[in-house]
Simulated assay, not measured.
Amino acid sequence: MDQYTLGLDPLPKKTRKEVFLEEMNQVVPWATLVALIAPFARGAHQALGGRPPFPIETMLRIHCLQLWWNLSDPAMEEELHERPLYRRFAGLDGAARMPDETTILRFRHLLEKHQLAPQVLAAINTGLAQQGLMLKTGTIVDATIIAAPSSTKNKAGERDPEMHQTKKGNQWHFGMKAHIGVDADSGLVHTVIGTAANVNDVTQAAGLLHGKEKHAWGDAGYQGVDKRQEMQGSKAKAKAKIKWHVAMRPGKRKALDANRELHKLLEKVERLKASVRAKVEHPFRVIKQQFGYAKLRYRGLQKNTARLTMLFALGNLWMARKRIMALQG
């Protein structure tokens, strides 16, 4: 039997995308980020045949949409034409024209040229710290491999020369590594470093510390980090005082005897270390699963590191959104 609506439209239901964009619209400090970008954006879009440039906030919102749904520049242009939801979020609802893929690309290049991604991360983290969401008393360090296209079917006929392969377990991976320093209390990222995949994790540990922490945690790949040259000397006094809690090597831990009291205590210590280190995996999950960035889109470390830094900055806001909205009332 057909159902009659009596001329009434069905009740609207918010999709997950609508809820996501409403929450991010509330927690992203748009005014702060626009003020950060504005000095570098003057005259950046004058090559549009005399047409007025789009507002910086509009382009920033479009760039965020690209990051959240892992869209290329042409795909982003098409999405703006097809999705009213995206146009409303970018402030283009009812606009006479839409940014084309070249305009979107130029804005991305603007951020890359002036290395604004680390400044965006710092600005966002400053706001989080002012709200008491980052304590900076401890840091967890870790790295993850981001795969790069290994095909040589391109104009140059070769793979990206800045990417390398590395072996993890019994499997080879080609790409880069994203090294991050995470606040041990909140699990929010405060430092991002991009390297080729074959770079050893422990070599980047010193660069992942902000110098104000008293404790640092790392997995077994950071064994001997406190004895490295970059952690010693007068220039690294603050970092030299940090107490490191590094995981035991898997082979050594496997050899522990469960019947010996000392070995039982050592196993408990390792579990406590692991419980703290677990927080570092959440930002990686957000980047790879929530934002879908499981494979590199561009060639070169600089472009990909800038994209990853922006992703981790927005990921911090996503992870802390409930607490930020609660503080905003």
Rank of each mutant, 00 (worst) to 15 (best):
K17P: 00
R285T: 14
K167A: 09
D201V: 02
A197N: 04
H81R: 15
T58W: 01
A184R: 00
A129Q: 11
N316C: 08
Y4H: 13
E22P: 03
Q223L: 15
R277Y: 01
A258T: 13
V202H: 12
Y293M: 15
Q115Y: 07
R299P: 02
N200Y: 11
K268W: 02
V141I: 15
R260H: 14
G49F: 08
V19T: 11
T103N: 02
L327Y: 00
L208G: 06
T166Q: 01
A196R: 12
R228N: 03
K155G: 00
M248K: 05
G292L: 04
G91V: 03
E79W: 11
N200G: 09
F20H: 02
M59A: 03
L6G: 07
I146P: 00
S150V: 10
Q328K: 13
Q115W: 01
G251R: 06
E158G: 03
L71G: 04
I124K: 07
A75R: 14
A143K: 06
A313Q: 04
H263Y: 10
N125D: 10
R108A: 13
N259C: 07
T32K: 08
A320M: 09
E158K: 13
L272T: 14
A41W: 02
P10L: 14
E23H: 10
I56V: 15
A240V: 04
K214D: 12
N259D: 12
A294Y: 02
A38P: 00
W30Q: 11
A31E: 13
L121R: 02
L296W: 00
N70I: 02
T5V: 14
N259L: 10
G187R: 02
M98W: 08
I146K: 04
L116G: 07
